[in-house]
């Protein structure tokens, strides 16, 4: 496990330094629900240039195994699609939210969420998305989307969500 982390961090070190000046794109309160209404110009899912299409058809999130930030094959496929969409729609910028399940302590989960968000960011950058269009934020265990205290819910909460917004090309 440590081995994998290290591999990710080597990649990570090359990455986010271009991501500067964090501000409030979506206001102070964590969204993280990935539901409708994120960002401007949401549109409908039938419009391939809409945020709704990104969320519902491309897929806005990837899931992680317990206490890891390693991308799964399924996650990489989703992110490959995300990268392609972002390159086709250069007017959009993205904030990648990293989340953890409730089975961890608060500070550690913040750090784990940061790892997950960064893993996604690095993958998108490796696929050609400009780093300047991406920012990362961790919510730790603060914004679960599934509230049962069972693995079926925990699995949904261990996620990184790519939240896009139009007209903010950094």
């Amino acid at each position: 496990m440590t081995y994998l982390y290290k591999a990710i961090f080597v990649v990570a070190a090359l990455g986010l330094s271009a991501c500067t000046n964090p501000g409030a794109l979506n206001g102070g309160n964590g969204t993280g629900n990935g539901g409708a209404g994120m960002g401007q110009g949401t549109g409908t899912a039938s419009d391939p240039h809409s945020a709704a299409y990104f969320q519902q058809t491309v897929g806005d999130r990837v899931l992680f195994a317990v206490d890891t930030s390693t991308l799964t094959p399924e996650g990489r496929a989703t992110l490959t699609g995300q990268a392609k969409w972002l390159m086709d729609n250069p007017e959009f910028a993205a904030i990648i939210e990293g989340h953890a399940d409730e089975r961890g302590t608060r500070a550690y989960n913040l750090a784990l969420g940061a790892r997950r968000a960064n893993a996604v960011s690095e993958f998108l950058i490796s696929q050609g998305v400009a780093a300047s269009r991406l920012r990362t934020v961790t919510y730790g265990k603060e914004r679960p989307i599934a509230v049962c205290s069972e693995e079926s819910c925990f699995a949904q909460n261990r996620r990184a969500v790519t939240v896009i917004s139009a007209g903010a090309g950094a």
Partner: peptide, 24 residues
């Protein structure tokens, strides 16, 4: 991103965590 702050016993220093590029 920064979190997990605490004061030093003399109140002059803050120790905390900082995340950059996924590393904390």
């Amino acid at each position: 991103m920064t979190f997990a702050p605490r004061f030093s016993p003399d109140g002059q220093t803050v120790v905390y965590s900082l995340s950059r590029g996924g590393n904390t």
